[in-house]
Design a binder for these strands. Structure first.
Lengths: 170, 170
DNA sequence: CAAATATAGTTAAGTTATTAACTAATTGCT
DNA sequence: AGCAATTAGTTAATAACTTAACTATATTTG
């Protein structure tokens, strides 16, 4: 069935490509499987991630820009996501009096309570979606991924694309 | 300065959790970095993925449902994505006369030409975003991720894992 | 000090993603 | 044959996410 000199092979199967493709596919598979789990708490996966970050940084003065960098998400998206979970009473925003451009974001007691309820069943789901790996493999996987992204720019747009200013329209 | 029994530690740092968290973070970092690369060809990353799959399966009779399973994407999303790149002339859909519910999807010569242009520079970008890893590490990373998702259901909602038994490899 | 510039956040338009509800076509059952 | 159930695909509503363009505040500097 397979042609030998097929155009399908024009894209060389390098180690770099295999790594990237597998990350993309795995993310799709994992979020699809975890989605219903979070939905049962009326949360989306990104909303859960947001609450998790806010909990981890609790006590610090967390700006929205920092959240964007932590979550690898654009700043406008942080605004929109926070607005939704703020309406739900899970977080609150307060303007920094010392620099009124900034808003400090904080998880509310309600948000924390929700997080704790999720944590009760979360480990089971995480075990399930990674059931194909042993514990040492899971750790090695995390190590490799963290090593990969360690050298990458945090890249929340803008800061490195600053030269794209005053571009005339065609 | 660190509190010993902090609520931040309520969520245990298991190997399974580390693995999943690192996949999610890596995906965010990678797609953010690769996005501008695809944008320079007037494509989004998912659109590129779609064309790649259509090229790999070229010659086969590819239904939209199959594309959803290959891409780990919901069926309605397949419809919408295909509509856009069909308008751009990169793919075409044709109703199967033998079963008029189905549409066979095919990459057009224009779509193939675009793919080939991207392939010329793609390897460089893939090297760049995985620069933190050696080639053996990249291969090991891909192996672990593929092993992880191998046992998971294709899960495009609805049919769940029902037809997930002994599918012959392409 | 005022003007230029930089920074934090929001709004707007568009793509990608989801689930739920729908249409249309085929299969299966009696 | 005829009607229920299944299957492929679409449409609708909503969330996530992007870039571009905007507001408001702070800082730099001439």
């Amino acid at each position: 069935m397979t042609e030998p000199t097929d155009l399908r092979d024009d894209f060389p199967d390098t180690p770099a490509r295999r790594a990237v493709v597998s990350v993309v596919r795995s993310f799709g598979a994992l979020t699809r499987l975890m989605g219903p789990h979070y939905a049962s708490f009326n949360l989306t996966p990104p909303q859960f991630q947001m609450l998790t970050i806010l909990n981890r940084l609790r006590g610090e003065r967390i700006t929205q820009r920092r959240l964007g960098r932590e979550l690898y998400v654009s700043f406008p998206n942080v605004t929109v996501m926070l607005s939704r979970i703020e309406t739900a009473g899970l977080i609150e925003r307060k303007v920094n009096p010392a620099d009124r451009r900034e808003r400090f974001v904080r998880i509310t007691p309600a948000g924390l309570a929700l997080l704790k309820r999720i944590w009760k069943v979360q480990p089971m789901h995480l075990e399930h979606v990674t059931a194909g790996l042993t514990d040492p493999e899971r750790i090695e996987l995390a190590r490799l991924l963290n090593k990969m992204i360690a050298g990458l720019p945090p890249a929340t747009t803008e800061e490195e694309a600053i030269e794209n200013r005053s571009t005339p329209e065609p």
